[in-house]
Design a binder for these strands. Structure first.
Lengths: 226, 226
DNA sequence: ATTATATGTTGACGATGTAAATATATCCGC
DNA sequence: GCGGATATATTTACATCGTCAACATATAAT
């Protein structure tokens, strides 16, 4: 089976079969990416608990020990995949800020983007915050998470000048960042874990999640005294 | 107590033992409680990832399959232990409310109690919110979690009359509950996962965690316009 | 071309969850 | 007290997992 040179697709032989860069890397000159893709598929289908090295290798069509070369161990794979998730989330948040009209709207847009990401990729989101399973000394993970902080900080500081107190106080900036992050992160996690389901029943309309999130974000705005 | 025949619950083989009852009999007597205690010890020492059926049994001094009789499977053990955690948290929150002076102070006290619980029992707290590993059809878990909701709801409704808008609106009550819960839960989870560490550095004093939490809670109070 | 390195495979080991078969203790109706 | 029914605990077994070591092969370097 493994020595069947004739039909086995994963052979190192066909160096350059066609002038076109074959997207099908037979012998995974791109195994790392293939493994990450397979791992994310598992995350979508079975969640974090289903994510194993062997199943990932199986889906990529390689032996169970192949991932070791690219990730070291399971923690490595999970950390790299989490980094991809943080990158993606940072990009989404950044876009949300760019499209928003005004500093206050930008903050809300970031929050909604964060929640939408968690809802659309709950498995990946869970992995990103399964701290015990991640290696935060990994360069990819450090870089990706700092990207998120950067986007949030920019948005908060853009809003700052319009506020009355603590204009340039870094302490207040940090408090604002923490408040927004905690609120939205708590909402996202509790939401995808079905912890808010009973409360959602009280909300009106079709988009009950959006309604509850709006209600929560509204409670964060002291300026809006009705 | 299912069996009060003697003084020691685990004493069923009085063969030719010395005056002291043998520490181990075939039937433990209170194995379920012993297993839960052992499981929590593991949680303290090694976190959720270290919590296994076999290690729990090992610590309780029984065979690896013994827990099956009391919990069914690992999910059962985890769910029961999580239920204990929710009970404990509900009690702590309830006490915090009782000791607080005024409705607004009660809300803050609940939040601080929630965070303190997470900080003092991070392993258990993680387990309580590892939704994928829990069985929310378990009676113990349903009851314990609804206890938490009850405490929070009471505190929110106690505060309600002092507010200007949405006095008796259940929709607004739910929004207030969700806001408080999400904010505090987000803070607690991010905190014990070391995600807030960089931000804590900006806070003054010895109790940086308390300072940041205070700052966050303060941002939730529209009435305090300085 | 030869050597070195990177990548992938095979086989093995111990740990785990779970099930089945078995053993022992307790309970319940007499 | 007695004896079966039930609850509780053990033993054995199996599949799966992460990880390691030894090995094989492809790519890169010299």
């Amino acid at each position: 089976m493994a020595n069947d040179r004739g039909t086995d697709p994963r052979r190192h032989r066909p160096r350059k079969i066609s002038t076109k860069a074959a997207p099908r890397a037979y012998h995974h000159g791109a195994l790392k990416e293939a493994l990450l893709r397979a791992a994310e598929d598992i995350l979508v289908e079975d969640g974090v608990s289903g994510l194993t090295l062997r199943e990932t290798a199986r889906r990529a069509g390689v032996s169970h020990a192949a991932p070791k070369n690219h990730f070291g161990d399971l923690r490595g794979l999970m950390s790299e995949l989490a980094a991809v998730g943080f990158q993606r989330l940072a990009a989404i948040m950044s876009n949300a800020v760019a499209d928003a009209d005004g500093a206050e709207a930008a903050m809300d847009a970031i929050g909604r983007a964060y929640v939408n990401f968690a809802r659309s990729s709950p498995g990946l989101f869970h992995l990103m915050y399964r701290s015990e399973a991640l290696d935060f000394t990994r360069a990819a993970l450090i870089e990706a998470t700092s990207g998120i902080s950067g986007v949030l900080k920019d948005a908060v500081m853009r809003r700052k000048p319009a506020r009355s107190t603590g204009k340039g106080d870094p302490r207040d900036t940090v408090a604002s960042m923490a408040t927004s992050w905690c609120l939205v992160h708590g909402f996202a996690t509790l939401l995808i874990d079905q912890r808010l389901t009973p409360m959602l029943a009280y909300m009106p309309g079709d988009d009950k999640v959006g309604a509850l999130l709006d209600a929560i974000l509204a409670k964060m705005k002291p300026s809006r005294r009705t």
